[in-house]
Simulated scan of single mutants.
Amino acid sequence: MRKAFVIVTILALVAFALQFIFAAVGAFTKPAGDDAYALHSVNGMAVIPVLTLFTILFAVLAKAPGRIVGLAALPLGLVVLQVLLAGLANGLTDTAGASTPFGLTIAGLHALNGIIAVHVVVGVHQAARRLANPAPAEAAPVAVREGEPA
């Protein structure tokens, strides 16, 4: 199960990296229609949450310490926050439907939260690797009696 935990964290990292690429695809699509962010939306609303749930599941099945299980659950909360930030940013427009400075600030927080989520997933992956491949135990110190050569 510990190897599966590592593998699912790699898949999550790939999905998060793709999320940034899909956001750029949406931002640079001309003309920008409602479907410009389709890949970003599907990945963020389906793929990433499922992989995050699998990460939590495999952390528990790998008998990871509670701190690591909690760290594995954190991206799920950050994904929920992402959805809230995106919805709020999209809703904060003026009467003509144009972006407002406050809405753009919230959109910036959406991007910042995505960066934070990636860093958390990197930490989960590192913890999963350490759990799967623990460092070799250090040699126990040898007692030397006084007067004997070391």
Rank of each mutant, 00 (worst) to 15 (best):
K3S: 14
F5I: 04
T9C: 13
I10N: 01
A12W: 05
A12N: 14
L13W: 02
A15L: 07
A15M: 07
A15H: 04
A17D: 04
I21K: 11
F22L: 08
A23F: 00
A24Q: 11
A24H: 09
F28H: 15
T29F: 10
P31T: 05
A32T: 13
A32Y: 08
Y37A: 12
Y37V: 11
H40I: 04
V47Q: 01
V47R: 00
L51C: 09
F54M: 14
T55N: 08
F58C: 02
F58R: 00
V60N: 02
L61Y: 05
P65E: 11
P65A: 14
G66D: 08
R67C: 10
A73I: 07
P75Q: 07
L76C: 11
L76G: 15
G77H: 07
L78S: 05
V83Y: 07
L84P: 02
L84V: 15
A86I: 05
G87C: 02
N90P: 02
L92P: 01
T93W: 00
D94P: 00
D94E: 08
A98L: 11
S99T: 14
S99M: 08
T100E: 03
F102R: 07
G103D: 01
G103Q: 01
L104H: 10
I106A: 01
G108W: 04
H110T: 03
A111N: 06
L112K: 08
L112F: 13
G114V: 03
A117H: 03
H119W: 12
V121Q: 10
H125N: 15
A128W: 00
A128I: 02
R129Q: 12
R129V: 15
A132W: 01
A132N: 09
A132K: 01
N133Y: 15
P134W: 04
P134I: 05
A135F: 03
P136C: 09
P136V: 13
A137C: 09
P141Y: 08
P141V: 13
P141N: 08
P141R: 11
A143S: 14
V144D: 04
V144A: 11
V144K: 12
R145E: 12
